[in-house]
Computed example of a mutant assay.
Amino acid sequence: MFENLKIAGRAIRTVFTADPITRVRRFYEIQSPDVEFAARRTHYMNVGYWSDGVTDIDTAADALADKLADAAGLKPDDTVLDVGFGYGDQDFKWLRERQVAKVYGLNITPHHVEAAQRRAQEEGLADRTDFRLGSATELPFGDNTFDRVVALESAFHFYPRSAFFAEALRVLRPGGVLATADIIPVSGDVVRAAIQSGPLSFVKFSIPKENWHDRDTYRQQLVEAGFANPEVRSIKEQTWEGWRAYMAERTNDPAFRAVVKPAVRKSMAAHWKNQDLMKRELAQLDYVIAVGHKR
């Protein structure tokens, strides 16, 4: 019960935080990592890419990281900037599997940065990583620094995202690529404030209205930032439904039940109870992979 009260208190504080940057940081401090990642092998915080046969969030989240890496064209010896990196699971994956030369990570949540820094030390990758606190709209790097800039399910938070696009173009080398995996409405007619599902509360409270627009506007903002021939492609059919179905059943998973207190499980089950409402609201949300090239 005490843990539920703490979570509720953090949520209320987040909702009533006026500053958008502080609100996002507090959003990622609501849930205890011990609960959020219970009975999981990774610390991804994305909805995942649910191709046929995928049944768990860790495999789906790995797949989404691969989709973004493919879109960005990550290759050996690239210098990569990952903005809003969470705990950095994708970065360690790309260092191992794509053999990128170095990953710089920027994040506004201190405990995410600290966790990624610890992991880099533990895995002997401190010399190939640089995780630090910072703002996506004021990147603390010089012009023409990176081969790739990526944002894995984070750019919808950036205040505003269009300023991030401009900064990404500045820090990319000529020929460099920006790639994002991002959440937007299916059309500009979707009313953000009308979202009622508890699990989708982040849409209402941590996506600024400046970022609430469809694929056409997203593409146009990339053009206005200076990117050549940007592409904004929906992968909605491979994301939302798989995530919803998995999360709706998570509290029934024996491995999860073995490590999470009954009161917390009960609260989570209630949070995810109204699946009909969630399905209706998820139908209004798009999920895109966007790519832009610097001339």
Results as ranks from 00 to 15, higher is better:
residue 33 P to A: 07
residue 38 A to Y: 03
residue 212 W to A: 15
residue 21 I to P: 01
residue 154 S to M: 02
residue 4 N to T: 04
residue 236 K to F: 10
residue 46 N to M: 08
residue 102 K to P: 04
residue 100 V to K: 11
residue 24 V to H: 12
residue 128 R to M: 12
residue 59 T to Q: 02
residue 92 F to T: 05
residue 34 D to F: 09
residue 103 V to D: 11
residue 110 P to V: 10
residue 250 R to M: 07
residue 226 G to W: 08
residue 234 S to V: 03
residue 59 T to W: 03
residue 260 V to P: 12
residue 258 A to E: 09
residue 266 K to H: 14
residue 181 A to V: 09
residue 61 A to W: 05
residue 295 R to E: 11
residue 37 F to C: 02
residue 136 A to Q: 10
residue 281 E to R: 05
residue 289 I to Y: 01
residue 245 A to F: 02
residue 239 T to L: 14
residue 24 V to R: 08
residue 25 R to Q: 12
residue 266 K to Y: 09
residue 43 H to W: 10
residue 142 G to V: 01
residue 277 L to P: 03
residue 280 R to M: 01
residue 172 L to A: 12
residue 81 L to K: 03
residue 7 I to R: 14
residue 119 R to F: 01
residue 13 R to I: 05
residue 33 P to S: 08
residue 154 S to C: 11
residue 196 Q to A: 14
residue 257 R to C: 09
residue 48 G to S: 09
residue 270 A to S: 15
residue 40 R to N: 07
residue 134 G to R: 13
residue 261 K to C: 04
residue 132 R to T: 12
residue 47 V to S: 15
residue 122 E to R: 13
residue 164 F to L: 01
residue 238 Q to P: 00
residue 288 V to C: 01
residue 112 H to M: 11
residue 236 K to P: 09
residue 81 L to I: 04
residue 134 G to Y: 13
residue 37 F to R: 05
residue 39 A to D: 07
residue 235 I to E: 08
residue 281 E to W: 01
residue 253 D to G: 01
residue 112 H to W: 00
residue 245 A to N: 00
residue 196 Q to I: 06
residue 132 R to D: 08
residue 104 Y to P: 02
residue 126 A to S: 15
residue 114 E to A: 12
residue 225 A to K: 02
residue 72 A to S: 10
residue 167 E to S: 11
residue 77 D to M: 11
residue 12 I to D: 10
residue 293 H to Q: 04
residue 239 T to G: 14
residue 239 T to H: 13
residue 11 A to P: 00
residue 239 T to W: 10
residue 251 T to V: 11
residue 138 E to L: 07
residue 281 E to S: 01
residue 59 T to R: 03
residue 150 V to D: 07
residue 55 T to D: 09
residue 148 R to Q: 13
residue 132 R to Q: 15
residue 281 E to K: 03
residue 196 Q to F: 06
residue 180 T to S: 08
residue 230 P to Q: 06
residue 291 V to E: 04
residue 186 V to M: 02
residue 68 L to R: 07
residue 52 D to R: 08
residue 237 E to C: 12
residue 51 S to H: 11
residue 288 V to S: 02
residue 231 E to G: 07
residue 31 Q to Y: 14
residue 262 P to W: 08
residue 249 E to A: 11
residue 81 L to W: 06
residue 197 S to H: 04
residue 256 F to D: 08
residue 179 A to S: 14
residue 155 A to C: 14
residue 2 F to I: 08
residue 83 V to D: 03
residue 65 A to M: 05
residue 208 P to R: 12
residue 67 K to Y: 06
residue 237 E to T: 14
residue 195 I to E: 14
residue 170 R to W: 08
residue 277 L to K: 07
residue 234 S to H: 07
residue 110 P to C: 09
